[in-house]
C-alpha cells in the first residue's frame, strides 16, 4: 500500500457528518476552549485573582474585557474560568452518563425488581425541579465546588437511566441479541456486546446536549452561592458577581458569552454526532435516494 493510499483511506474514515460546516464550527469552538484550558496561564495578561487599582474599568487596550469591582482582569478570569467550568461540567456529564446508563441498562434488561427500584428512585428525582433539588442537596452538603458536583450528579442521572432503559427494552428483543443468547451469551455479555453498543449513539448525543445544561447548572449553583466559593474564577460565580454591578456590563457579559459559546458548541456537536454515530447513515441517505 502506498502512502497515498494510506492517506486516502484515512480520509475516507472521517464520517461525512463531521465534514459539514456546523461540525467544523462546533469542533473549532471546542478545540479553542481546550487550548484555552491548557494555555490559560500563558494567554492571560494577569493572574485570575491578581488585583489592580483599576476597578470597574470598561474594556480597553490594557484590560480587553475590563476589570471587576476589586480590580481583577475579567479576561484573565474568563480564561482561567474555563479551567474550572469546562472540565468540571464534562466530568459531571460523563459521570451521570455512566451512572445513569448502567442503572437504566440494568432496569431495562433485567426488568422486575431491579426495574421497579431503579425507576421509582428516578421518578422521585424527576418529581422535583432539577435546580431546586440540586439547591437542596448543595445547601445540605454546604457550599463548595465538589459538593455542587455531587448535587448535580444526584439530579442529572435519571434522564440517562430513563432513555437507556427504553432503548434497552426494545434492543433486547432484537434478533441479533436473541441470536447471541442462543449462542450462549450470558446477560452481561449480551448487554456489553450486543445491546449497549447499539443504544449508545442516542445516549451519547443526549450527553453532549447535557454539557451545556451541566455548565448552566453549575453556574446556577455558583450564582446562588452554593457552588464555587470566591475567589474561584468559575463562570457562573462571575456572572453572579457581575449582575450586582449593573452598569458594568462586561463583568457578567464576558463570562456569559463564554458559557453561551461552549453550550452552543456542544449542542451543535450533539446534532452532528447523532448523524455520524449511526452506522446506517450513509446507507440511509443512499436508500432514500434510490
Amino acid at each position: 500500500m502506498t502512502a497515498l493510499d494510506a492517506v486516502r483511506r484515512r480520509r475516507l474514515r472521517v464520517p461525512a457528518a463531521l465534514r459539514t460546516p456546523v461540525a467544523v464550527v462546533s469542533l473549532a469552538i471546542i478545540v479553542a476552549w481546550v487550548a484555552v484550558i491548557v494555555l490559560a496561564p500563558v494567554l492571560s495578561p494577569a493572574g485570575p485573582n491578581a488585583q489592580s487599582f483599576d476597578r470597574l474599568t470598561a474594556p480597553s487596550a490594557e484590560h480587553w474585557f475590563g476589570t471587576d469591582q476589586v480590580g481583577r482582569d475579567v479576561l484573565s478570569r474568563v480564561l482561567h474560568g474555563a479551567r474550572v467550568s469546562i472540565p468540571v461540567a464534562a466530568m459531571l456529564v460523563v459521570a451521570s452518563l455512566v451512572i445513569g446508563s448502567i442503572l437504566g441498562a440494568i432496569a431495562g434488561y433485567f426488568g422486575r425488581v431491579a426495574d421497579e427500584v431503579i425507576m421509582r428512585v428516578a421518578d422521585l428525582v424527576f418529581a422535583f425541579p432539577t435546580i431546586i433539588l440540586a439547591m437542596v442537596v448543595a445547601a445540605v452538603l454546604g457550599p463548595s465546588l465538589s459538593n455542587a458536583v455531587i448535587a448535580i450528579l444526584v439530579v442529572s442521572w435519571p434522564p440517562y437511566a430513563r432513555v437507556t432503559r427504553s432503548l434497552v427494552l426494545s434492543a433486547r428483543q432484537a434478533e441479533y441479541v436473541i441470536a447471541g443468547r442462543l449462542l450462549g451469551n450470558g446477560p452481561f455479555t449480551s448487554l456489553s456486546k450486543d445491546v449497549l453498543p447499539n443504544v449508545a449513539a442516542p445516549v451519547v448525543v443526549l450527553a453532549t446536549l447535557d454539557v451545556g445544561t451541566a455548565i448552566l447548572l453549575l453556574s446556577g449553583l455558583s450564582f446562588l452561592g452554593l457552588g464555587a466559593v470566591p475567589p474561584t474564577p468559575e463562570w457562573g460565580a462571575m456572572v453572579s458577581d457581575g449582575v450586582q454591578q449593573f452598569s458594568s456590563w462586561w463583568i457578567a457579559g464576558f463570562p456569559g458569552l463564554a458559557i453561551m459559546s461552549i453550550v452552543l458548541a456542544f449542542n451543535l456537536l450533539g446534532d452532528v454526532l447523532r448523524d455520524s454515530l449511526d452506522p446506517h447513515t450513509a446507507e440511509t441517505v443512499k436508500g432514500r435516494a434510490l
Binding site: A174, E175, Y176, I178, A179, G180, K193, P197, P279, H280
Partner: peptide, 12 residues
C-alpha cells in the same frame, strides 16, 4: 431468523 437485516449486530 427471517430478517437478515435484524439478525446481525450492525456494530460488529
Amino acid at each position: 431468523f427471517q430478517n437478515p437485516y435484524a439478525s446481525l449486530n450492525p456494530r460488529r
